[in-house]
Simulated assay, not measured.
Amino acid sequence: MRIRTTVAVVSGALALSAFAAPAAQADDSAGDTKISNVVVNGGKAVVVDATKAKKVTLTFTATDNSGIAWAHPILYRGASIEKSETGALADSSDGRAKCTKVDATKSTCKATFTLKQRDNLINSVAGTWKVWIVAAAKDDDYMEKENAKSFSVQRASKLTVDASPEPVKKGKTITVTGKLSRANWETGKYAGYSAQSVKLQFRKKSSSTYTTVKTIKSNSTGNLKTTVKASVDGYFRYSFAGTSTTPAVNAAGDFVDVK
């Protein structure tokens, strides 16, 4: 059965961090085996900080008229499984998902993966990842999907703000500083995120809604600085909309008392 060789080769390549041309094809199948309802991390982006490894759960459904024998999923980053830049095997001893029989033809499957800094995570692999799955039936039918699902793996972000002076006279200048940073998976620290558009927002003391005052860009070290005129008591914050590699984040509001 060709698919068993494929699984062994792909798994071995990922386990050894050697991603040179496993014998997988884009998609392949025999018989009536189907894979559906693929969900990674509850449908949310996978956000990983600078030091703590991240556990990621994958769930999916596999069906075949003879019942499902086993399923083997892999998470990977790259144009294809053959050209993977990095990847993650399921945490089970054999790399397979745990499949639970629902009825004679359908099983629900679950696998947990560990994404770890300086292991399968370096800064350059943040962005879109894919799920490779093969499901095998009891009658030797199977389905292999190279991109059963796409999902985001992102470098965790932080954003600060400081508005001064406090208090300030009405009409005087307020200087608002801050910093946008994100996890560096290679150093285990947070580093400034440069050249990013960040909104300065304000809400009056009596309001629960922030409005955008202006948009500025972070400098080469991720620092932010701008000025505004004092008008009424309220809170200033910076707001970052996020990118494909870094999640959105808002700074906690900093209150300014206007006299």
Rank of each mutant, 00 (worst) to 15 (best):
E166A: 10
T245H: 13
W70L: 13
G188L: 10
P165M: 06
D94S: 10
G127R: 06
I3D: 12
V46S: 07
G42F: 02
Q196E: 09
W70P: 01
T173H: 14
T221C: 05
L58F: 03
T61I: 01
A13Y: 06
E85F: 15
F113T: 00
Y76K: 09
F60G: 02
F202Q: 05
T128P: 07
V131T: 01
Y190L: 11
G95A: 00
G178V: 00
D103E: 01
K54N: 10
I133K: 04
T128S: 13
A71G: 02
T160E: 07
T100W: 02
L16Q: 09
Y142E: 00
T160Q: 04
A24Q: 15
D162K: 12
S197K: 15
S124F: 11
K106V: 10
S84Q: 05
V9G: 09
K98V: 11
G43V: 02
D141W: 13
E146S: 15
I81P: 14
F255S: 09
G242C: 01
S36W: 13
R182M: 14
V47A: 06
G78F: 11
N184R: 07
P165N: 09
Q196G: 03
R2Q: 15
F236Q: 10
N65Y: 12
D141C: 10
G242S: 02
S206M: 03
C109K: 08
T51H: 01
T160W: 08
K205Q: 15
A248H: 07
G43A: 07
T6A: 12
L14M: 13
S194E: 14
N250Q: 04
R155T: 04
A183D: 13
T86A: 03
Y235I: 06
S164K: 06
I3Q: 11
V168M: 11
K106C: 04
A13L: 14
G95N: 06
F236I: 01
L121Y: 08
T226Q: 07
S157E: 12
N184E: 10
V258N: 00
D139W: 14
A15E: 09
V249P: 05
V9T: 14
R4C: 11
V9Q: 15
A18E: 09
F202N: 05
G78N: 10
T5G: 14
D141M: 12
S197D: 14
T105R: 08
A97D: 03
G87H: 00
G12R: 08
S164P: 02
T246K: 14
K55L: 07
K55A: 09
P73K: 03
A62E: 05
I174T: 10
S66L: 02
